[in-house]
């Protein structure tokens, strides 16, 4: 049996390689900056998205303050769309924390769907900034914990650059046209993801929450979206995670078929059932509710929830979405403590 000599980084990398570990790690592939982290540096959330140093400092802070077992950048979901030519809003004027959104869509109607992907995408928008930040973060905490990043899945990205309303209807009415767009966007995603690999990311999460079964039928997911996800994962050389939130029990086998190293599901997934379907060797990351439990719950609820996730046999304690910044420190500590003391 492997002993206490595992560093956190080794633990996670061994997990990705399906090697024996002492306990499930507690980490994420999505944003996890906290207001405690922001306070420590005196940064404002809206400023983080365009400054490598600030982004790196805060990305390391959940590890530094709470012992969270990773550092993740970026913090928003607009990097790819911005590189493709969309303008974003970081809500600099708002006191509260708001995540950046797309100001203006790239595709305004069905006839504009045949876009051309700009050359040199890896040098456009904030892709260089995120790449630089990955490097800074590696230098800062890379010996202790894994450094990860994420990209959007093609369908979710399509929803960023065109009206979701149109995209959903066209997925049904004109799947060929949508498929073509998803193909183009997959190429773009691969370019960006490969750039992050080059920058030194240890693993990458592909966030395809737009394709949840709350929105789309499993059949449409399989026929229209799965082929492009496969194409993306084929082109990744570091460990990878496919994340889809909401209802996912009917698509977990497709999520595995994408070729990702691990699947990530949220609190709406019945993990016991998922484990039964996928068997003991599949890496299933999840599935606590990062808001209603981690932010709004009492520490006891956090402990119960985390224990249940592990009893349900998740491979890693991992949130259902970005960790919402206002998580109370006592809750974050309760989560970390519960994971560390857990013995199955």
């Amino acid at each position: 049996m492997i002993g206490a000599e595992l560093t956190s980084r080794e633990r996670v990398m061994r997990l990705f390689n399906s090697e024996e570990i002492d306990r499930p790690p507690c980490f994420s592939g999505m944003g996890n900056v906290t207001t405690e982290g922001l306070k420590k540096f005196g940064y404002k959330f809206a400023e983080l998205h365009s400054d490598a140093k600030m982004m790196s400092d805060t990305a390391a802070s959940s590890h530094r303050i709470f012992g969270f077992e990773c550092g993740i950048v970026p913090f928003d979901l607009c990097v790819e769309a911005e590189a493709l030519g969309c303008e974003i809003n970081v809500y600099a004027h708002v006191e509260d924390i708001l995540y950046p959104t797309i100001k203006k869509k790239l595709i305004n109607n069905e006839d504009e769907m045949e876009i051309s992907i700009p050359a040199g995408l890896q040098m456009r928008g904030r892709v260089p900034l995120v790449s630089e930040t990955i490097g800074l973060l590696k230098k800062d905490i890379g010996d202790e914990v894994v450094v990860g990043t994420y990209v959007l899945g093609p369908f979710t990205l399509a929803g960023q650059i065109m009206e979701l309303n149109d995209l959903l209807k066209l997925s049904f009415k004109k799947p060929d046209k949508v498929g073509k767009l998803l193909g183009l966007l997959s190429d773009a995603i691969i370019v960006i993801a490969n750039q992050y690999e080059k920058a030194g990311a240890d693993y990458i999460t592909v966030r395809e929450m737009g394709a949840t079964s709350d929105v789309l039928s499993p059949r449409l997911f399989k026929n229209l979206i799965l082929p492009y996800l496969k194409k993306i994962f084929e082109k990744l050389s570091i460990p990878s995670v496919i994340h889809i939130c909401g209802k996912t029990n009917d698509i977990v086998t497709f999520m595995v078929e994408t070729g990702a190293t691990a699947i990530s599901v949220d609190q709406k997934n019945d993990v016991v059932q998922t484990r039964q379907i996928l068997g003991k060797d599949t890496l299933i990351f999840g599935n606590y509710d990062p808001y209603n439990v981690l932010v709004a719950g009492a520490p006891e609820l956090v402990r119960e929830t985390i224990k249940k996730c592990m009893d349900d046999s998740v491979s890693a304690i991992w949130p259902g979405c970005d960790v919402w910044p206002t998580v109370p420190p006592e809750n974050f500590n309760a989560m970390m403590d519960e994971v560390k003391k857990y013995r199955s």
Partner: peptide, 14 residues
């Protein structure tokens, strides 16, 4: 009943 999903509902709304 999960026979329809959001795209279908949007088309019905149209």
């Amino acid at each position: 009943a999960q026979e329809y999903f959001v795209p279908e509902m949007l088309m019905c709304a149209d």
